[in-house]
Write a protein that binds this DNA or RNA. Structure first.
Lengths: 275, 275
DNA sequence: GGCATAAGGTATGACGGAGAACCATTGCTT
DNA sequence: AAGCAATGGTTCTCCGTCATACCTTATGCC
């Protein structure tokens, strides 16, 4: 009785260790199962991803980190009030405060009480430049996935943007472009990000904009580990101008093409630092 | 004391009704806040989406519905065992069973006990054809977003696919294409979906594949409400062949272009039924 | 026929997180 | 100087969910 390992519940992973990610569902072909029509080669993995990436705390942390990494709230800027932020993220204020506590401990934000108080972003003590840090992050992030997905989203956004540009959109785009020109070196990444986010937003697809925000945050995390060369920056600026020009000209094909080239540059740079 | 409405907690929405979606964050410009650098026009909405779309139950339900809508588990097919499925979705078996209970009540799946038992997909009692149903779904789904995002993902996938195609990939693609040719009318949508999913998967970006799966599930939900015309189907088939051919030829530009055209067709069809 | 096995069905205790109410602090307005 | 309002800080309770264990049913194999 004691030695017998019962076919216990809720942990088949113990008996079939690596069956989850790579293998999946061979049992679908078990005898007695009528396989109607075709039996597709497509895997279920794409859909059967975890409903929640972690606990609510971790997901919220990740999302607020995105906010900071994208520079949507600049150093010195204020995050939304706790009550509002909690509501937007659909988490309780208690949980949110645990997240903010972590960020405070990391000296990334600072809280001030009283009216017109709030949670303020501190001038980045984060972003520790260094290639060992890059290696650490590459271990977590699927770089190829990030780069490819980014290119698809950016090119698509540029194309859509060119097709359905409004007058107001054109104005915002021009403003964002000129902001990158006037940016000091330490603020360049932020302005660059904002320009691209503007493009994504003007694509007219909320899903696209949201996905781009996510992938760009990941990208920034990687880019923060490599030096910002003035040479690259100038090249980048020319490409930005060309993309915006194509969009304003309603030339979708050119916009997509230019954007792909632009993304290819960043991708090559990053891949260079990885090899 | 009794009449005084205290500035209560956790529901600022009551005092500022519509401030969440449209407005957001004007308070960022409040006095006393030093706005470093630029003050971007970009909104925080893209990042500050809910950490969880609903409770775990709802999200899991949505995900399993995706599985069915994509036809990844065909009618008559078996879902993964409860223990396994729960683990993949990272929810408890109890919660998962609540989800399955709902699907059983809707006569979408059926559970059988005993060895080689499981949860089986019933031949669609769902997909209630009819334009009033379409109207109901359009009220929930942002159709423009879906169509645009889809086009971007599909075109991007086709391009990436053409650039980095392996021999095995080519084989899978050819197989998926020929499966659409041999499909009976009631199975066509499923084979069509599988072909596109294969392309997305072969793009080499897991994120892209996952996002496509989601958007395609939404799209299928809409398409199930409109009739499947043989005329459109034949046209579709020619385009499929052209896309696959371009991919096999490693002609990324042509693949993207053809795919955009293909998506444009579906989009026009759907928009037609909506106007 | 009997047993092992794999699947669904059921019950329970513990815990994380949501929601609500309250307190404490600050600065603007009067 | 007083009051108000908006913010962060704290505490409480309750519900959903998880983990675990066990029961029941059906099938294949010996």
């Amino acid at each position: 009785m004691a030695t017998r390992r019962r076919a216990d519940d809720t942990r088949p992973a113990a008996t079939q260790p690596a069956a989850r990610v790579g293998g999946g569902l061979e049992a679908l072909g078990a005898p007695g199962v009528r396989e109607a029509a075709g039996g597709g080669p497509a895997r279920l993995d794409a859909v059967l991803r975890p409903v929640r990436a972690g606990n609510g705390f971790e997901e919220a942390l990740e999302q607020i980190l995105q906010l900071l990494r994208l520079g949507l709230v600049p150093p010195g800027g204020r995050l939304p009030a706790e009550r509002e932020l909690a509501q937007q993220l659909r988490i309780s204020r208690v949980t949110l405060r645990e997240v903010l506590k972590v960020l405070q401990d990391q000296h990334m934000v600072e809280s001030r009480r009283g009216r017109y108080g709030g949670t303020f972003v501190l001038p980045r003590a984060f972003a520790p430049d260094g290639s060992d840090e890059l290696a650490r992050r590459v271990a977590v992030v699927d770089v190829e996935d990030t780069l490819r997905f980014r290119e698809v989203l950016e090119a698509g956004a540029a194309g859509l943007c060119a097709e359905g540009l409004t007058g107001e959109g054109g104005g915002r785009l021009r403003a964002a472009l000129s902001a990158t020109r006037g940016a000091r070196l330490e603020d360049y990444r932020r302005q660059d990000t904002l320009l691209h986010l503007t493009l994504a937003e003007l694509s007219g697809s909320r899903s696209l904009a949201a996905q781009y925000a996510g992938v760009r945050a990941t990208l920034n995390e990687l880019l923060d580990c490599i030096p910002l060369l003035v040479r690259n920056l100038e090249h980048s600026q020319h490409q930005h101008a060309a993309v915006v020009e194509a969009v304003l000209d309603r030339d979708a094909d050119a916009a997509r093409e230019m954007m792909r080239e632009h993304c290819g540059g960043t991708a090559a740079l990053l891949r260079g630092f990885l090899s």
